[in-house]
Amino acid sequence: MKVKLHIWRQNGPNDKGKMVDYNLDNVSSDMSFLEMLDILNEDLILKGEEPVVFEHDCREGICGSCGLVINGKPHGPESGTTTCQLHMRKFKDGDDIFVEPFRSKAFSIVKDLMVDRSAYDRIQQSGGFISANVGSAPDANAIPIAKNIADLAMDAAACIGCGACAAACPNGSAMLFVAAKSSQLNLLPQGQPEKNKRVRAMINQMEKEGFGGCSNYYECEAACPKNISVRFIAKMNRDYFVAVVKEGTKV
C-alpha cells in the first residue's frame, strides 16, 4: 500500500518546526507503524537527509518510549494500543497520515517527534514510592491483600508512563498518570503510612511542572494505551481532599 505522510519536523527545542510531507510506497500491511517509519528513515538516510527522530525501544508496548500523535490521536486510531503495536493494516491504501509529537507545556520537544518527559520522573521522585529499605521487608504473605484490591492496584500499575494522557488532554494535564501512580500505592496496605504525603507531594510536583488541571474530559482514558480508568483520578481526588483537610497543602 501507499501512504502520504505529514510529519512534524523540528530541529530542536527552540526551532519553530513545521509539517513536512513524504510519500511512501511499498508499505506492507503487516508492518508496524514504527517499521513503516523505519523504512522512511532508511530512505532518508540513503538520500542524505536526516531521518525523523522518534523515541522507541521495546516495540512490544511496554517500555513507554514510543508515542506519536497520529491523525490527531495519541498512539493512533486503535484504542488500547501503543504506537509500536499499531499496525499498518489499520490504515487504507492512499491514506493521509499526520504524525505529530506529544504536546503539553511540560513536554518540550527535543527533536522532531521526540519529547522530554522527564517531568514524569520528577513527579515520581516527589513521592511515587514506598519507603522500604532492602532488608526490612516482612514475609510477602504476612499481609494478605484482597484479590480485588490487588487487581485494582495492578490496573493502576499497568501505566507505562508514555505521556499519552497529557498529550491527549486539551489541558495538557497529567492527572491520569499521577492518579495511576499514586493510586497503585495508596490502594495497598503497604502504601498507607505515606498515603497523605504521597498524594500531596505528587500533585504539588505535577502543578510545578506546568501540567494543566483536569476538566473531566476523559480524553486521557480514551488515549491511554493501557486503558487506565479515570476512576483513579477520582480516587486521587478523594485521597487528596482528605490529605489536604488533614495536613494542608504545604509539602
Binding site: H6, G72, S79, F98, E100, K105, A106, F211, G213, Y217
Partner: peptide, 12 residues
C-alpha cells in the same frame, strides 16, 4: 498548559 496546538486533533 498546552501552548502548542496540534495541526490535526480528533477527540475520542
Amino acid at each position: 498548559a498546552r501552548p502548542d496546538k496540534y495541526v490535526v486533533k480528533r477527540y475520542i
